[in-house]
């Protein structure tokens, strides 16, 4: 069982994710340079946080054309699990694997804080260690995390039970307090909070551990 972490020029949470998955959870993890197209042998893929391509044009707009992401679409079609964290979430929406878009925080600040989140759905296996309405606490660090979508898309997300995480105290103005969503099938999760920064007991919080541990289920 292997996890692949996609690395773009400008990714900066790639090594944190590997520390969490390999160092804290003991899952073999490799880095995948964005120019690779071979995803064979991986059970799950993580798109980490950072500023891919300097976030030029829009967050994730240039990264979505990376060769590795063509392969990622087939990987997802075959049911492979993909987790996009922060910039990874932005890339997944630009790519169209997740609906909506992430826009500038309402208060214009880059917010680096700890956010209380409620588990909004346990439909997908990502949240299988939780019950609906459980609360967890994870770090957030973003300037463009305000989730935005049309009313039709919002209704569809709700009908499909695809809203995975909500902010208890909305920090960025996201529509319906949305902090993370899945695709309809449930194998793709995008979230602005950073589970990889809450896996090591040395950091004081380990609420991210159970989300990352589901990469292999």
């Amino acid at each position: 069982m292997n996890i692949g972490i996609i690395v773009f020029p400008g990714s900066n949470c790639d090594r944190d994710v590997r520390w969490a998955t390999e160092g804290c959870l003991g899952i073999p993890t490799s880095f995948l340079w964005h120019e690779t197209t071979d995803l064979d042998g991986f059970d799950a893929i993580v798109i980490p946080g950072g500023f891919s391509y300097g976030d030029y044009l829009r967050c994730g707009a240039i990264a979505r054309f990376a060769p590795v992401l063509n392969s990622l679409i087939s990987f997802v079609d075959k049911g492979g699990k993909v987790l996009g964290i922060c910039n990874g979430f932005q890339i997944l929406t630009e790519l169209g694997l997740l609906q909506g878009a992430l826009t500038r925080n309402k208060n214009l600040h880059f917010i680096c804080d700890r956010a209380n989140l409620s588990i909004a759905s346990t439909k997908s296996s990502w949240m299988k260690n939780y019950k609906k309405h459980d609360f967890i606490s994870l770090p957030i660090a973003h300037g463009e995390g305000r989730y935005q979508c049309s009313h039709d898309v919002l209704k569809k997300l709700q009908d499909d039970d695809s809203v995975a995480l909500r902010y208890a105290d909305n920090p960025n103005g996201s529509i319906h307090d949305i902090a993370g969503i899945t695709n309809k099938k449930g194998n793709v999760l995008g979230m602005m909070p950073h589970p990889e920064r809450a896996c090591d007991e040395a950091l004081g919080h380990i609420d991210g551990k159970s989300i990352l541990s589901t990469l292999l289920s």
Partner: peptide
């Protein structure tokens, strides 16, 4: 497909 994101 690139310059604008039609969602927003």
């Amino acid at each position: 497909r690139l310059l604008a994101n039609p969602v927003i």
